[in-house]
Amino acid sequence: MESYVNDIAFIIGTTLMYSTPLVYAAVGGVITERSGIINIGLEGMMYFGAFVGAAVAYFTGDPWMGFLCAGLAGASLGLLHAIATVSFSAEQIVSGIAINFLGVGFALFISRLVFDGATQTLTVPNKIPLPLDFLFGEGKLFVSAGFMDLVFNRFATVYLAFLLVFVAWFVLYKTSLGMRLRAVGEHPEAADSLGISVFKIRYGAVIASGFLAGLGGAAMSIAVVSRFSNTLISGHGFIALAAMIFGKWKPQGALLACLIFGGAKGLEIFMGAKGVPIPSSLLATLPYILTIVILVGWVGRSQPPASIGKIFDKGEN
């Protein structure tokens, strides 16, 4: 009995761990796409963020400084994407592809410069802390390696991710800023004719998405693991993109989708650890196949924001 409880706790724990980086990027995706700009550059933004986060945390010893700088690194790529898509009517997917090349390029270029030609950083001295760690252990409120420990003794980034989802939901649906942002994504001409600056809102949204994707990268490199390597962010940005779509462009939906994806990953690791007689490579396909099945099954035709991907040009000159 006890072992089953711990098994479940283990799966929940790994689920939370793997979902978190995705949540940041997916919420970033929700914000930009709600403003009408597709951002398939999330992958490159996460990649760059993961590197900058680990590098800064390594040199300063301060994981929070790394976390913040990771956000700024992602935001800088977001700025590029915004310049292309908002100011120069770029094809949004093409610009996103460029961002992916740039994110990977910048991360590895700088990595080779500062880490002696290597495409990975050294181990950071301090990871993102476990804020509730003091509750667990000998003579504390909860025993270590028990259910509560396995589930709730998580990195601060996990709790921040949940907080982020709440804040994003609140801003999008309860504030005038959020209403304007949604209006811009649905009908930019309408917003423009009411004096709302489509330009400013979209710049803000795309930069914010870069910031969040950067945080997501750092949540991987300085919390889940303790260094950046060139294989760390292999496709997470794209998975976040999928999570955003099957979360129907809502922060809470994206969270749920990330949890499902993380859950599939957690299950895969658990089954691998338990020696289930399915080859590990085939188990690894589970999250991806599950995503396709869910998309095919019931989210395929869900409605994106009406103006998404369309160029908004005031026709002035």
Binding site: A84, S89, V94, S95, I97, A98, F101, L102, G105, F109
Partner: peptide
């Protein structure tokens, strides 16, 4: 990679 990214970036615009 950076150069390729920049080329595509401008192709997009």
């Amino acid at each position: 990679n950076i150069m390729i990214g920049i080329i595509i970036f401008f192709v997009a615009m």
